[in-house]
Design a protein around this nucleic acid. Structure first.
Lengths: 210, 210
DNA sequence: GACGTCCATGACACCAAGTGTCAAGACGCC
DNA sequence: GGCGTCTTGACACTTGGTGTCATGGACGTC
């Protein structure tokens, strides 16, 4: 945030738009090929040939073959944290977390077909599932920090924040699993409600503290 | 080696004992090297050179470089399921699951130093953490099936079994994390109790069913 | 004791993921 | 037009992982 006598184009620079374009092209080519031929049935060379760039460029945009899929859902974690931070302070943990988790779920329902095929691909491919879970572990830490802040925990003393975040993400996972298993037929919002009905007694039992 | 009055077991064939020997040698070499130089700092060639076998043989015993570490904790999942199945039918879900989760934790405390270094290695290495979580997802399904059986759920209708298993494993993860983070100083049994005190209200709220 | 079978192994070639390096081109600024 | 910066492609290279085949040892059978 410098008060620099600004830029002719306050919009994004041409270079950045080009970067975005290449990234989109790569993601598009990858998701289409992977959804059609499976994760192990597609090589990086195939993807980059389709997208019209070199292999080296692929790895300048994505850290790994898994990354191009998982990163497609990357902002989910950030969205959840943002939403949780935005919930009113007085709201109970179960309600606040349910709203937070609902954000990415709603986004899935939004881009229905695309999201469904990606989620199915991830859940069906061990290597992708593993990376997805690992990324979730980072979301969990972020969520836990926010829960601790909201509920006034000082930090590492109590297990509640970590567990509350973990339970919310378990609900998220279970919903995703059911949703993709039903080929999108199940209502995500309803599944979320059912899942949180199960875990809410633990989330809201946080009464006394030191 | 076998200084003990040897029982030549016709049960276990020589071939099987040889297999076990090679497997142990490989695991030993791998864990020592990995703990010392980190996951990315050790190549398969180094490991097999230390163990005195060929690279091809390594992959006849382990599916991947990650596997040699994660498989070291593999029976944990089976142990948990076995213990859960052995708990008395009348026991509440929270108690039964706590006992089940306590089994591998106690095993960790048993082989203290070895288990600690392995757990720390896993939690500190993204690739290993990912594989570990993915393996846990399989444990979760097994545990969920057993929970469903115990509580009389018919199967895929209700989310409770999946979520109960997920919560128990979240407790497991959180305990492992705290334990390894404290370099083994924290008491695992105490951590387990704390964790289950948080999630028990949800586990035991399973009242009515179809 | 010789023979045939099974199985684990090692050697080797091979594919695919990922990285380091470098030269060439595109862009922005003066 | 000239110059620094950023992006890219080409290429070589390391490493994880697999297919294939020949060897050799253990074991059972004659």
């Amino acid at each position: 945030m410098s008060s620099r006598p600004e830029v002719t184009r306050p919009e994004v620079s041409l270079a950045q738009r080009k970067r975005q374009l290449v990234s989109n092209e790569l993601t598009e080519a990858a998701l289409q090929l992977l959804a059609r031929k499976g994760f192990d049935g597609v090589t990086i060379d195939e993807i980059v040939a389709t997208a019209g760039v070199s292999k080296r460029t692929f790895f300048r945009y994505f850290a790994s073959k898994e990354d191009v899929v998982v990163q497609f859902l990357a902002e989910m974690g950030a969205d959840m944290c943002t939403e949780l931070a935005a919930r009113p302070a007085g709201e109970s943990p179960s309600v606040a977390l349910r709203q937070a988790v609902s954000v990415p779920i709603a986004a899935c329902a939004d881009h229905f077909d695309r999201a469904l095929s990606v989620v199915q691909l991830i859940l069906r491919t061990p290597a992708l599932h593993a990376r997805f879970l690992e990324r979730q572990a980072q979301w969990r830490d972020d969520l836990a920090a926010e829960v601790a802040r909201r509920q006034g925990f000082d930090g590492d003393g109590d297990l509640y924040p970590q567990l509350a975040a973990a339970m919310a993400l378990s609900a998220f996972d279970t919903v995703l699993q059911r949703w993709s298993g039903s080929a999108g037929a199940a209502d995500p919002a309803e599944l979320i409600d059912q899942a949180f009905a199960v875990i809410a007694p633990a989330l809201d039992a946080v009464g006394r503290r030191a």
